[in-house]
Simulated assay, not measured.
Amino acid sequence: MPNGSARRSGIALTERQKIAWLRLIRSDNVGPATFRDLINHFGTAEAALEALPELSRRGGSSRSFRVATVNDAERELEAAHRFGAVFVGIGEPDYPPALREIDAAPPLLAMKGNRKAATRPSLGIVGSRNASVSGAKFAAMIARDAGTAGYVITSGLARGIDTAAHRASLRTGTIAALAGGLDRPYPPENIGLLEEIVSGEGLAISEMPFGWEPRARDFPRRNRLIAGASLGVAVVEAANRSGSLITARYAADFGRLVFAVPGSPLDPRCHGTNDLLKQGAIVTTSPADVLEALAPLSRDDLFSRPRSDVEVKKPAVEEMRPGSGTPADGDRARIVEALGPTPVEIDDVIRHTGLSASEVHLVLLELDLAGQLCRHGGNLVSLVPAA
């Protein structure tokens, strides 16, 4: 059973580093995985920023590449300050320890509320927006008992199960992961709930820019935050092809526990959870099922190893070294020829071409920044299909 104490390790970014990191992640075609590879290759965000236009050109882009400016970053930092929020980097003490460990974790999170909640062990709870009375009641039971046991409850501020989980854990601590900017919560009817969360023991987090209105394609990123920040995810009522099942899939990919509450086969809201049980999810008929399974994962030292202020997860095979030479045109062509519309493992591309990991990753960066590369889970990449 966790004691609820915060696990805080890491080194704070300087103001200059934070501005550079914010500029890099807000530049064209730079997502978390690209950010990681750029830092690993160039050593600092400042050096990576200088290289972006040339990398994009070498990747085949014919248009001007937009690099976020210092003024852009300073304006967003000021917007966060006015809103009562801060940006926390992946190597800083208040970054969620479990989220830090996933592949391509967000380099920066916007946070508002009690940041100590981010460093405590978390249980994710998700489910149907049109929840049944019994489903909402059971989600609240899990949230209440887990909160009493020392866990923070992480969910997505949606209607139904999410709302029930957040409300049941207001006193013990809850994290709302948002699909849009912190200043653009969704749905509107839960704005009051969000205010209760951030004014008490809870926290709101987002990887999206301030002012960003959430779109349908942003919600899977929100679901990824929930799964990544949690030791396990409990799914209470989920229809087939629902966002809750996306969260469960992310949780399984990250090696997290997946709990599913069985339901009537006649209720479409339970089809997804029942399928999760067939796939090996933990049968959950009481909060005790969750707490017993989480207990071995809840040591205070589980994610306590320190990181430097610029360290992010490195490629598994070979670290890309700052200052590596530019691949020859023939080598670049070999890498591009090895790719196609079907996702392949980067390690397989390295073996197939016989080139170094550093060269392959640099060419992938060029293609990525030019908008020619798709990144998939499990270290897979593919070329963007021709229009």
Rank of each mutant, 00 (worst) to 15 (best):
L231C: 01
R241M: 05
R217N: 02
W212C: 13
P214F: 14
S308M: 10
A227E: 05
N223W: 07
R256C: 02
A288T: 01
V236C: 13
A293I: 05
T284C: 11
R269C: 00
S206H: 10
T273D: 08
R221D: 10
G255P: 10
L266Y: 15
L257P: 00
I205T: 05
R269L: 03
V258R: 03
Q279V: 01
D218M: 12
A229P: 02
A248G: 01
A293L: 12
V235W: 12
F210L: 13
V258F: 06
N240I: 09
F219G: 03
Q279Y: 09
V261K: 10
G243S: 09
V312F: 14
P296I: 04
L277G: 06
G263Y: 13
D275R: 15
R299D: 14
L225N: 06
A234R: 03
T285D: 08
E292R: 15
G272D: 11
N274L: 05
S199F: 05
G211R: 15
K314N: 09
G232N: 09
R224Y: 04
R222T: 07
P268Y: 14
P296Q: 11
A216V: 00
E201Y: 13
S308K: 14
P265W: 11
C270V: 03
R249F: 05
G200I: 10
D301P: 06
F303N: 09
T273S: 14
L245H: 07
T247K: 01
A248K: 03
T285A: 08
A295C: 08
P306I: 03
S242L: 01
E292V: 11
L203Q: 05
S242G: 06
L297S: 04
L276G: 00
